[in-house]
């Protein structure tokens, strides 16, 4: 598979060379297709750490190439009179995708819920404004005599409340990122205006963006508002996870399978016993030391008694 990967890369490089020579068909589409195809390839022949890097490089390259293609197309259509706003929109879109990917990865829902909302993008519409949640909400509003058992209804209601809190916390948190992006864009523009010598490569453009972004980011995360939003989203994700764990534990208990909570109690008891054992060992060690000291003292006493007896005998003999 690794060789397939390499030959695909070489094929694309050749295509790029030809394209440069003939100025014909843009090979970037082919590159994207190839890059998409690369993701699952070749990884099993490399140690995990290297495989992870290849995958990362590939993803990065897709984004980089996509953006480069947009810029090239923009420049070719407008010549040197390219509109700043169009370029910036493209760049902004490119970086928004990267940031969004990062936020979602960082604050992802616990696995089970993540699968449920797999296709959702929180920036498009309300996360919880969908038929599943509507259906569930109306089910929960039905009086318990007609619908679910009261305990189940209560538990589901708690889950919905936690999901809503997560959604609001995530929106609040991502609003900070929108503000950071906007502020960073402003800083970025200023930096471009002041660039001397002028920016000539996408690499330089990225570096400039990173500088502007980190500055704006550093200012924002030092604020109390951001700190509160960060705490809120952290706690919301953990609460959801804990809720699902409780749910799972209850089910396990019903099947007679020990739950994580029960295992935890066992670990706690083991830990206490480990401590007691260590304390006992220390006491035994102290007693051993004491015993050795007593033995040593006894020996000293015996020695001095013997030497006392000897000197008495000598005195008696002399007298």
């Amino acid at each position: 598979m690794a060789d397939d990967l390499l030959s695909l890369m070489q094929q694309w490089m050749k295509q790029l060379e030809q394209q440069r020579a003939t100025a014909g068909e843009d090979p970037l589409d082919a590159w994207f297709q190839m890059q998409q195809a690369l993701q699952p390839l070749g990884v099993d022949q490399l140690p995990p750490q290297q495989a992870e890097l290849v995958s990362l490089l590939t993803r990065q390259s897709i984004e980089f190439s996509r953006f480069a293609e947009q810029i090239i197309s923009q420049l070719e259509h407008s010549g040197s009179e390219t509109e700043l706003s169009a370029l910036l929109n493209q760049f902004h879109g490119h970086l928004r995708r990267l940031t969004q990917e990062w936020i979602l990865k960082r604050w992802q829902l616990p696995e089970q819920l993540g699968a449920l909302f797999h296709t959702h993008s929180f920036q498009d519409d309300l996360l919880l404004d969908n038929p599943f949640i509507h259906g569930l909400k109306s089910l929960l509003n039905t009086p318990s005599q007609l619908g679910l058992q009261h305990s189940l209804q209560t538990r589901l209601q708690t889950g919905i409340d936690l999901l809503i809190e997560y959604e609001q916390a995530l929106r609040d948190y991502s609003a900070h990122y929108s503000a950071i992006n906007t502020d960073a864009t402003r800083g970025f523009l200023t930096a471009i205006e002041q660039a001397d010598p002028p920016i000539q490569s996408i690499g330089e453009l990225h570096d400039l963006w990173v500088e502007a972004y980190e500055q704006s980011y550093a200012d924002t995360i030092a604020s109390d508002d951001y700190r509160d939003a960060h705490g809120r989203i952290s706690n919301a994700v953990m609460s959801l996870r804990r809720y699902l764990q409780h749910w799972r534990n209850n089910q396990l208990q019903q099947f007679g399978i020990p739950s994580a909570e029960q295992l935890e109690r066992i670990h706690q008891r083991l830990h206490e016993q480990r401590r007691q054992l260590k304390a006992l060992n220390r006491e035994v060690q102290a007693l051993r030391t004491l015993r050795d000291e007593v033995t040593e003292l006894k020996q000293q006493l015996n020695r001095s008694r013997r030497s006392g007896t000897r000197s008495r005998k000598q005195t008696d003999t002399r007298s």
Partner: peptide, 28 residues
Amino acid sequence: GLKLDPGRIREELARFNQQLQDSYHTLK
């Protein structure tokens, strides 16, 4: 402050992806 040229960007992209290919060789 901005002087982008399609030809140079293509070259940059080609260089980036050539380096990517080299990286793959190194990692292998």
